[in-house]
Structures are given as structure tokens and as C-alpha cells.
């Protein structure tokens, strides 16, 4: 983990939730799990983003390692990114935390 490029830099208040999300993202490496919970995985993926700038391109998932392979996850990730060509990392984090908690039926 390269410090300073973690998404929690842009949303320090959500640091702890982001850690949980990274854990879920590791679980999402299993194709069967990822296709069963595409939205959860797309939201969790944002926590694995290592982009040092304040904004990312709309197709930010190409920078995530390991790269997502399930089409449904990518589709949900695109929904999280919204309409613009660029999206600020903070906006992405806020949206994905919301989606993540909603998927876990806690929000």
C-alpha cells in the first residue's frame, strides 16, 4: 500500500469503513462471489483504488489491481462513477460507501 494514494486521503472520516471494503474486495476475487454481489463488489473496489490525484477518469477500474473481470461489476462501477468524464475521488468514495452500506442493509 503506497501511503498518500489511498482513497481515505480524500475522505479521512471513512477510513475504517474503507478498510472493511478492502477486505470485501479481496473476497470479490472469487468470480462466483463477484457475480452474485456485483454492486457490493463495485463499491468495495473503490477502496482498492490507488490513484494519487484528486480526480479519476470515468473508467477508473482499469487502475485497480487486481483488475475486475466480471462484467456486472464493471457495469456497477460505471454507475458509481456517474456521468462525467472525470469524477473526484471523494465523490466516488462517498457514493461507494453509501452503496456498500446499503448492500449490507445497514444504511
Amino acid at each position: 500500500m503506497t501511503d498518500g494514494c489511498h482513497p481515505s486521503k480524500w475522505a479521512p472520516a471513512y477510513q475504517e469503513i474503507l478498510l472493511y471494503m478492502e477486505e470485501v474486495w479481496r473476497m470479490c476475487q472469487k468470480p462466483s462471489f463477484a457475480s452474485a454481489y456485483p454492486r457490493l463488489c463495485a463499491a468495495a473496489m473503490v477502496a482498492a483504488l490507488r490513484e494519487c490525484g484528486g480526480v479519476v477518469r470515468h473508467n477508473y477500474w482499469v487502475r485497480v489491481k487486481p483488475r475486475p473481470k466480471i462484467a456486472a461489476v464493471i457495469k456497477e462501477a460505471a454507475k458509481l462513477a456517474g456521468k462525467g468524464k472525470y469524477v473526484s475521488v471523494r465523490a466516488l468514495v462517498i457514493r461507494s460507501v453509501k452503496a456498500f452500506l446499503k448492500e449490507l442493509a445497514l444504511y
Binding site: W10, A11, P12, A13, E16, Y20, G54, R90, L106
Partner: peptide, 21 residues
């Protein structure tokens, strides 16, 4: 997407806001 992300992040740090779930 409207808010200024730099300011928001700084305010969170300075106010010490942490959401724990």
C-alpha cells in the same frame, strides 16, 4: 460532486470526524 474535496477532507481531519460502523 459539487463540494470541494480538498476542503472537505481537511475539515474532516481538523474536526476529527470518524464514522465507525
Amino acid at each position: 460532486e459539487w463540494i470541494n474535496p480538498k476542503l472537505a477532507a481537511r475539515l474532516e481531519l481538523e474536526l476529527g470526524i470518524v464514522y465507525v460502523k
